[in-house]
Computed example of a mutant assay.
Amino acid sequence: IIFLIMEDRNHSSVTEFILAGLTEQPELQLPLFLLFLGIYMVTVVGNLGMITLIGLSSHLHTPMYYFLSNLSFIDLCHSTVITPKMLLNFVTEKNIISYTECMAQLYFFIVFIIAEGYMLAAMAYDRYVAICNPLLYNVTMSYQRCFQLTVGVYILAITGSTVHTGFMLRLLFCKANVVNHYFCDLFPLLELSCSSIYINQLLVILLSAFNILTPSLTILASYVFILSSILQIHSTEGRSKAFSTCSSHISAFAVFSGSAAFMYLQPSSVSSMDQGKVSSVFYTCIVPMLNPLIYIAFATYTTANLNARSLTH
């Protein structure tokens, strides 16, 4: 559908955009380039390492690690869609992106940001079943169920991205072509349009609310039941283990949903683009890097804690 719209689009005079970047201060360009290059390298190594480790270790072929490997794949793709072009902006005088490339970046960015939220919700459901219904866990979280949940995540992500990008392709871009951002995001592009953006703004608020609140409420409901079950565990070791398996997931979701909500659930008149840049750095660069580190840190802590307990007893 998107490509058909692009073929029919011949009324916009803008054929390329200029990305303004994260900052215009020359003395910050090199330090920021090195910083985000380091972040991207850690992101790639961390997420590829996580996927490889889970794939090669047969004892990690469980639903929890199946979803975690999918989350690592989403984080890797999400960061790759944004960061390489962002790095170019630090070392070139003008970071030019064609109209087609800009729309493609917007499309895949939205796919992976929506997929991230729903994958975290699927992981919360997995933890709910594991803690609240442990005897039925292997039956409930069968390979078929895990596959269905994963397919559902990507269907929701592709559908939401197709709607956003499809309506963006219907807009006119006449003369202004400087995107006040380091990538092609929704609000900065809408500011450049010389046609009515009312429907687009309405879609951003409605779909963003749906795609942020739905995973958030799913996770909240899951953890209400999880907390209730944990409080009924009499063993201190059992409570500690249950809490530790959930803490990493809660931490990852809090950072991601908080920064995304700050950007997309505010009216554009309230949130300036400069604030939006800082907020978007978290869910485009920081979160994909932190997720594997968070899960590795909590896994290491849990293992060390359990070993210490076993030695004392």
Rank of each mutant, 00 (worst) to 15 (best):
I1M: 14
M6C: 06
E7K: 14
E7W: 04
R9Q: 13
T15D: 07
T15K: 15
F17R: 05
A20C: 04
A20D: 15
L22S: 00
P26E: 15
Q29E: 07
P31F: 01
L34K: 14
L35Y: 13
F36I: 08
L37N: 08
G46A: 09
G49S: 12
G55F: 10
H59N: 11
L60E: 06
T62P: 02
P63Y: 04
Y65N: 14
Y65S: 07
S69P: 03
D75F: 10
C77G: 05
T80A: 15
K85I: 13
F90E: 02
T92L: 11
K94V: 06
K94A: 09
N95R: 01
N95G: 00
I97Y: 01
S98L: 10
F109Q: 04
F112D: 03
L120E: 03
M123I: 08
A124D: 02
A124L: 05
N133W: 00
P134I: 12
V139M: 10
S142G: 08
Q144W: 09
Q144R: 15
R145Y: 11
Q148G: 03
G160W: 00
T162I: 10
F167P: 02
F167T: 13
R170V: 02
L171I: 12
F173L: 05
N180L: 10
N180V: 04
H181P: 00
Y182G: 00
C184A: 15
C184L: 12
L186Y: 07
F187L: 12
L189V: 05
L189H: 04
L190V: 08
S195I: 07
Y198N: 07
V204F: 10
I205R: 08
S208E: 15
S208P: 03
L213E: 02
P215V: 11
S222T: 07
I226T: 01
I230P: 13
I233H: 07
E237K: 09
S240D: 09
C246Y: 01
I250M: 09
I250L: 15
I250F: 14
S251D: 09
F253G: 01
F253H: 08
V255G: 01
G258Q: 06
G258E: 07
G258L: 09
A260F: 11
Y264I: 01
Y264P: 02
L265M: 10
D274R: 11
Q275G: 11
T284H: 01
I286S: 01
I286K: 02
P288A: 05
M289V: 06
Y295I: 14
A297I: 06
T300G: 01
R309C: 08
H313W: 12
